[in-house]
C-alpha cells in the first residue's frame, strides 16, 4: 500500500465502530524502516496520534484500531514526526537523490518497502534517517 492511498482513510474503532478521525500522515521510524504511528486529522481529543501497535488492520477503505483506550497507549515512545513525503533525499555520501514522492509499506507489519523518488526507487532497507532537513539512505552497494 502507498502512503498516498492511506491518507484520508477513516480510522474506526473495532469495539464500538466509531470514527476517531482520518489519516493525515504516517510517522516513519527510519531506524527500523517501519511505520511507527498514524497521525489523525479531525480527531476529537488528545488522540491525534496513534501508535502503529494500536492498529488492527489497514484496509482499502478504512483503518481499524482496537478501541479508543488502546489507541491512546504507547504514545510516549514514538519517534519525532517529520513529514516523509516531499522530503529531500541524500545518500550517506552526501549526494542528492531527488525528493520522496511516495512510500510503499506493508499494511500488516508496517514495514517500509520502497521509497519512490523522481530519480528512481529506493528499497526501504536502505533507509538510515529521516530528519527535518532530509531523508538519508545508504549508498547503493557497488
Amino acid at each position: 500500500m502507498l502512503f498516498t492511498q492511506a491518507f484520508g482513510l477513516p480510522v474506526i474503532t473495532a469495539d464500538d465502530a466509531t470514527t476517531v478521525g482520518k489519516v493525515a500522515d504516517l510517522t516513519v521510524d527510519a531506524h527500523n524502516a517501519t511505520v511507527a504511528a498514524v497521525r489523525l486529522s479531525g480527531a476529537s481529543d488528545r488522540a491525534g496520534v496513534l501508535a502503529w501497535t494500536a492498529v488492527e488492520a489497514v484496509g482499502p477503505d478504512a483503518v481499524i484500531v482496537r478501541s479508543r483506550v488502546t489507541a491512546e497507549q504507547d504514545q510516549d515512545r514514538l519517534p519525532a514526526h517529520h513529514r516523509a513525503l516531499g522530503s529531500r533525499v541524500l545518500t550517506e555520501h552526501g549526494a542528492e537523490h531527488g525528493t520522496v514522492r511516495d512510500i510503499a509499506f506493508d499494511p500488516v507489519s508496517g514495514r517500509v518497502l520502497t521509497l519512490y523518488t523522481a530519480l528512481g526507487e529506493i528499497t526501504g532497507a536502505r533507509l538510515m534517517g529521516l530528519g527535518s532537513y532530509a531523508t538519508v539512505v545508504r549508498a547503493e552497494p557497488v
Binding site: G94, G129, S132
Partner: peptide, 10 residues
C-alpha cells in the same frame, strides 16, 4: 556547504 547528520538533520 550544509552539514547533515545521518539522521537527516541539518
Amino acid at each position: 556547504r550544509v552539514v547533515v547528520t545521518l539522521g537527516g538533520e541539518a
